[in-house]
Nucleic acid binder design. Sequence first.
DNA 1: CGAAACTTTGAGAGGGTTCAAGATGAGTGG
DNA 2: CCACTCATCTTGAACCCTCTCAAAGTTTCG
Lengths: 238, 238
Amino acid sequence: MDVLKSAAPSNFCDTCTVRNRAICSDLTRDELNALNGIGRQRKLRAGEQLIWEGDEAVLVANVIDGLLKLSSQTSDGREQILGIAYPSDFLGRPFGGSTPYGVEALTEAQVCVFERRDFDRFAREHPRLEHKLLERTLSELDRTRKWMLLLGRMNAEQKIASFLLQVADRAGDSDTGEEDRVTFDLQLSRQQIADVLGLTIETVSRQMTRMKSQGLIDLPSRRTVTILDRYALEDRAE
Amino acid sequence: MDVLKSAAPSNFCDTCTVRNRAICSDLTRDELNALNGIGRQRKLRAGEQLIWEGDEAVLVANVIDGLLKLSSQTSDGREQILGIAYPSDFLGRPFGGSTPYGVEALTEAQVCVFERRDFDRFAREHPRLEHKLLERTLSELDRTRKWMLLLGRMNAEQKIASFLLQVADRAGDSDTGEEDRVTFDLQLSRQQIADVLGLTIETVSRQMTRMKSQGLIDLPSRRTVTILDRYALEDRAE
DNA sequence: CGAAACTTTGAGAGGGTTCAAGATGAGTGG
DNA sequence: CCACTCATCTTGAACCCTCTCAAAGTTTCG
C-alpha cells in the first residue's frame, strides 16, 4: 500500500480549491507536478503584507483563499487601493521590474507562492501557462481602466453606488431571493472603501447613511449591506 | 530581375519604423512574413476613431506612428482618457470580449491592423509573440495603476505637475541643453489634458498659468511647454 | 466591564466646478 | 496681406461638493 502511495506523490495542487480557475488550470498532470515543485503554500493573517511597494519583485503568487488589496501611497501617506485580489487571482510582477504597489491581506488568506525567477523560467517553458496569464492580465487591465473612469469622473454618490453594485455582483452567489434584494458582506472597513474610491471615510459614511435613509439599501451591520432597490442604485451609479 | 524580386516578396514590415520595439520584435523572418500576410497598414487622420467603446473587439493593431487615446465616457457625456498610445504600443483586446473603451487618433497616425480572429490564432501558434504581448500588457497595467493614484489622491497642482513631467520624459529625446530646461510639444489640447487628469479645462488652464507665473515653466505657445525648474516641478508633483 | 478601534454626525473651510465673458490664435476668402 | 470667423484658451465670480477638524456614538474584544 505504501508503495502505491509513493508512486503517486502527494501534491498540494490536488486539493487546491482554485485549481480549475487559476492560471494553472490548463496544465497537464506532469506540468502541475513540476510547478508544485517550485511553489509553496503560505497562510497570511489579516493585515499581513505579502509584497512591499517598490520592492524588487522577488515573488509572485496565486490567491487560493481570502481577499488581498493592491495599494500605493502618496508621499504624505494617503493611500489608494489599486485593486482587490480574489481567490484564483494572480499576484505580483513576473518578468523583471519592481512591484510598484504593495500587496496586503485584507482577511485571513491562503496563497500559493513562487520565487519570481523560478516562475519566470517555468512560464517561458510553458506557453499554455503564459497564455492563461496573458488572458488574466488583459482582463485585469480592462477592469483597472474601468475603475479610472470612476476615479476621474464620478462624484461620491456615483462612486459608492458603483462600488456596492460591483461587490454585490462579485460576492453574488451568497444570498438571493428576488433579483433586487441581495445581502452581502463588504469585507472592507469604511476606511478601505474610502481608499478604493478616492474619498474620505466621512464621505463614505455619509453617502451610505443617506442611501439607507432613502431606502436604496439597508445596513444590518457595519460590514453588511442589503440592496433594497437595485434599479434605483444603478441609476445613482451613472 | 523581376524573378529575383518575386523570390523575396516585398513586405511592409521591412520598412516598419517600430519593427524592433513592437511585439513583433522577436519574430523570425518567416514568422514576420506570415504576420504580414494577415495584417494591413492603415492611415488615420487626427480625430478619426479606430475602435468604438463597447464594440465587440474585431480588430487589434500596432501603432507605427502618431498618438492615439483610449477613452471612456460617463452616461452624461463627460470623458476620461484611460491612456495614450505611442508608436510601438499595442491596441485592442485579443482573446474574446469587447473593447470597453474607444480608440481615437489624436494626431495623424499610422497603424498596422489585424482582424482579431486572425491575430488570436497567430498569437496562439507563436508563443514568443504572446510573451512579448504579455510583457507589454504587464507594463501597461503597472502604468495604469500608477495613474489611479494620481486620479484618486492628487490635487490639481500635483496632477498637472506629474503630467508635465511624464510627457517631458516620454518626449524626452527632443530638446535638451541643461538637464532642467526641456522644451516639448504637448500634442494635446487643454480639454484633452483635462480628460486625462480628471479635471476641467478651466482648472488646467489656471494651474498652468499659475506655474508659469511662478517661474516653474514657460508656455511659448499653446501646445508647447518649457520646464524651467524641474526640481521644483517634481516637488509639486508629490 | 472597560478600553480601543471604528463609525457616525456636525460645522466650517477650501479647492475645483460651473457659468459667463473676453482674449488669443489659426484658418479662410476677399 | 488683411479682415473675418471659429475654435481654443484664459480669466473672473459665485457656488457647491468634498475635505478637514472635532466630538459623540457604537462595536469589538480582552
